[in-house]
Design a binder for these strands. Structure first.
Length: 415
RNA sequence: CGGGGAGUAGCGCAGCUUGGCUAGCGCGUUUGGUUCGGGACCAAAAGGUCGUGGGUUCAAAUCCCACCUCCCCGACCA
């Protein structure tokens, strides 16, 4: 991919209104654009990151045996009345009437829809267990949208729902999901913690929250400096670690995932029943598992940036490597840059070539800002000594490499 | 919704207190030239319903009223 053709819209200054690090950097690097408060467009660079994160989520969900599907955003209020959550959701739910006078909402979450679906198909113990998930846009009329995509009125969530014949089955899938979540957040390059949590509006017996320590986090957690044990803020009065009896550090954190054992809360009201081996009617045990996919982008940036810009963890970076020819009108330099771009692309890497006729300084600044993990500079040393420069965005370390051998870079970029 | 702040060119801002005639500056953009390894320089140019509507006045970005929008703190959440 060539920079000049890729709609990358970097800015020297971020709008004054943006305060959190992730929001400022997302605006400056041209990942998102606000349409109205709490509603953002993902520009190509941001969308690439989103796609990478979605991909990680998909892979790990599929590994648990969950199957992807897509549920509608348009839902009937009637369905919500059946579970009593119509009132509970209140004004957070975006409601309207269509031309036929049907009372509808834009789905803020999908327990009702998925349960209705399951009720229609689950008949026998042989139909169980199964887990379904989707990656889809949710709508919530937030009281106060905040920090860009951290709290927005329209956001992308991965929501999974498990259906089991008994609590034993539910416990097993719950633990599987918990493990999958840990893998997902690790792959996203996040330092995260998980705590037992209130189940809130979703309901159910037990839930775990996954939180990412971040300056702009809206939650508070306490983490033991010795053993790493984490407690939520609601476990008030805790001044020291119950294990080590040492002070716990107070951290702001951002909730990025939440998993719930729902039990029969929804399956009972919406009638997800099956006949067991003895022909007795039983109620399905459900679990639900959410990840704020779009919020993850902000969380990753909160934890991975410096004064110059974003530092993408490898797995979620919009590109694997950036090639910077310092002077595009120098044929020697340009030809080598193109050769590298083509060869590394052929090897399956996402390669961005900064083909702009800009001064090197401008390109380096943009390179740091957009945070592509690896940079190959083709400059005067190539023209004079046949050497290229390989720079790691995170460590800042620079390695000089004898050029002319694109294959040699492959290992470096992948390392 | 309660409390605080702000809307002037794509972005960042000045001008408003003390109305005044063609509304400024920096960045960015366009054209030409010189530069060329960490956000270059010179010259020329394009780009603005001063958030919207109403009022006061000879005259409103500036004063008054209403409304809209955005940001920050609080309650809520992925």
């Amino acid at each position: 991919m060539y920079w000049s053709r890729s709609f990358i819209t970097t800015l020297k200054e971020a709008p004054e209104a943006a305060e959190s690090a992730s929001h400022r950097l997302m605006l400056r690097s041209g990942m998102v654009r606000m349409l109205i408060s709490g509603v953002y467009s993902y520009l190509p660079l941001g969308y690439r990151v989103l796609a990478r994160i979605e991909n990680i989520v998909r892979q790990e969900m599929n590994k648990t045996g969950a199957q992807e599907l897509l549920l509608p955003s348009l839902q009937s209020i009637e369905l919500w009345q059946k579970t009593g959550r119509d009132e509970l959701m209140g004004e957070t739910m975006i409601r309207f009437q269509d031309r036929r006078g049907r009372k509808l909402c834009l789905g803020p979450t999908h327990e009702e829809v998925i349960t209705e679906l399951a009720a229609a198909y689950v008949k026998s113990w042989r139909d169980l267990p199964f887990t379904l998930y989707q990656i889809q846009t949710k709508f919530r009329d937030e009281l106060r949208p905040r920090f860009g995509v951290v709290r927005s009125c329209e956001f992308i969530m991965k929501d999974a729902y498990s259906f089991d014949r008994d609590l034993d089955g539910l416990n097993k899938i719950y633990e599987k999901m918990r493990a999958a979540y840990e893998t997902i957040f690790k792959r996203c390059g996040l330092d995260f913690v998980s705590i037992k949590a209130d189940s809130g509006v979703i309901g159910g017996d037990l839930s775990h929250e996954f939180l990412v320590p971040a300056e702009s986090g809206e939650d508070i957690v306490f983490r033991c400096k010795i053993c790493g044990m984490v407690l939520g803020a609601h476990e008030a009065g805790i001044e020291e670690c119950p294990h080590c009896h040492k002070d716990m550090g107070k951290l702001n954190a951002l909730e990025v995932g939440h998993i719930f054992k729902l039990g029969d809360k929804y399956s009972k009201t919406l009638g997800v029943k099956f006949l067991d081996e003895e022909g007795r009617q039983q109620i399905v045990q459900m679990g639900c598992y959410g990840i704020g996919v779009s919020r993850l982008i902000a969380a990753v940036i909160e934890q991975n940036h410096d004064e110059n810009g974003i530092i993408w963890p490898k797995e979620v970076a919009p590109f694997d490597v950036l090639i910077v020819p310092v002077n595009v009108s120098d044929k020697l330099i340009w030809d080598e840059a193109v050769k590298l771009h083509d060869e590394l692309s052929r090897q399956g890497l996402d390669v961005l070539l900064d083909d702009r006729d800009e001064r090197a300084g401008v390109k380096f600044k943009d390179a740091d800002l957009t945070g592509i993990p690896r940079r190959i500079t083709v400059g005067t040393k190539w023209a004079k000594e046949g050497k290229l420069e390989f720079k790691d965005r995170r460590t800042g370390s620079v390695t000089e490499i004898q050029g002319g051998d694109p294959a040699g870079f492959l290992a470096l970029v992948r390392s």
